[in-house]
Amino acid sequence: MTGKQYAVVLRSPGIGGWFAVLICQRFPVAMAPLALVFLGHAVTGSYAVGALLGGGHALAEAAAAGPLGRRFDVRPTPRETASVLGVEAAAFAALAAFAPVLPVAGLFALAAVGGAISSGAHGGLRALLVRVVPAERRVPALSLESTVSTTVWAIAPALVAVLAVLDARLPVLAMALLAGAGALAGLRLRDPGPPPVTARAGLWRLGWPAMVYDGAVMFGFGAVTLALPVLLTGFGARADLAGPVLTGCTLAGIAGALAYGARAWKGTPLAHAMLLATGIALAIGSAALVPSLGPAVALLALAGLCLTPALTARAVALQDRLPRSQWAAGFSGMYAAGGLGYGAAGLAVAWLLERTGAQAAIGLCALAGAVPALGSSALEVRSTARVPAEYGSGG
């Protein structure tokens, strides 16, 4: 089976409305880092304040994703989606309207609220998706979700840049409008209802290897993103070529996600995730060793090709481990871990660049990410070999 997998998913009842909400939820998150930098600079004259707002948004999102994802496990998804996206819309609308007169603390608080309040929606919408599509189509369904999310992340910075030319507050206003549209569309989501609540004690015990995996993989790949301009200049190229190179990695990731979901692959999703994580580490590590630009860029594109399906496969493996009533919290925990891993990569790269250079920094971060990603997954393989899976995919 190839594209027929996707056709079945797209014919699932209510899936069109689900994708509409997904897009409205993802765009504000993807626009926020650059939009908040521009806004902070416009109203204070300082890019440092803009970075502070972006950092506050990201940290609040990471901190709140797990607890707020849990709300989607015990409440109807339409009502919860509408509530959190409505508050997010209000926070960003207030930020756009009152930014010129607010103190930095006020700007930071609104940016943090906008990041935190809807952070559980990532896992909540993913959990809803795997509840409403046929159980045997969850891999193509999650591949489509990853494809849409990756596409949004590719488009969002360009949209912010275009709007900011007119007024630095316009991107934040657009974020508010998109979140508001998502809140209205969320009320129309088709939801079979939250599953029966089970004991919560096993969530972190069962889910921590997947969360370590996402954090570690994003640590390794985040180092590429953050060190790429310096890497390019080291090869004698212009730093602004980082944009096209990262776009190429994004397109490769979309292709990888679609290829992964288009057919059934031998082995378990956990085995797929481990194989793909190995491919990412080898590609990035090799890019840190080659002596010329062309092969390095090709290897980074190969890492991008593996990245999106790797995260998809790991999400499917986690779903197999958790009961239905913990899917949203588990997916949200993975999302938060990925954000923390990316943020940690920024700190590591900042420290390593001046001491080792870009290629060594990228290689060391790739190795540092691969070890916990593969080690935690190996421990999960051992535990599942000893104890049969408790819950299965659950449909």
Rank of each mutant, 00 (worst) to 15 (best):
G54K: 08
G55F: 03
G56I: 04
A58I: 12
A58S: 13
A58D: 15
E61K: 15
E61W: 14
A62Y: 08
A63T: 12
G66E: 14
G69V: 04
G69D: 04
R71M: 15
F72E: 04
F72W: 01
D73S: 08
D73Y: 04
D73E: 11
V74N: 12
P76A: 08
P76C: 07
T77N: 09
T77H: 10
P78V: 02
P78H: 01
R79M: 14
E80R: 11
E80W: 12
T81W: 04
T81I: 04
T81Q: 09
A82M: 14
A82V: 06
A82D: 10
V87K: 08
V87Q: 08
E88W: 08
E88H: 13
E88D: 11
A89M: 07
A89D: 03
A90V: 11
F92V: 05
A93H: 09
L95P: 01
L95V: 02
A96G: 15
A97D: 14
A99M: 07
V101H: 12
L102A: 11
L102R: 09
L102I: 08
P103G: 07
V104Y: 04
A105R: 14
A105V: 06
A105F: 10
L107A: 03
F108Q: 09
F108L: 14
A109K: 05
A111T: 08
V113Y: 02
G114I: 03
G115Y: 01
A116C: 08
S119V: 01
H122A: 15
H122W: 15
G124T: 09
G124A: 10
G124W: 00
L125A: 01
L125E: 00
L125D: 02
R126S: 13
R126T: 12
A127Q: 09
A127L: 07
L129P: 01
L129C: 00
L129W: 01
V130T: 12
R131I: 08
R131W: 09
V133Y: 01
P134Y: 12
P134T: 10
P134G: 03
E136S: 13
R137E: 14
R137K: 15
P140S: 10
A141T: 05
S143V: 03
L144Q: 00
E145F: 13
S146Y: 01
S146W: 01
S146Q: 07
T147S: 09
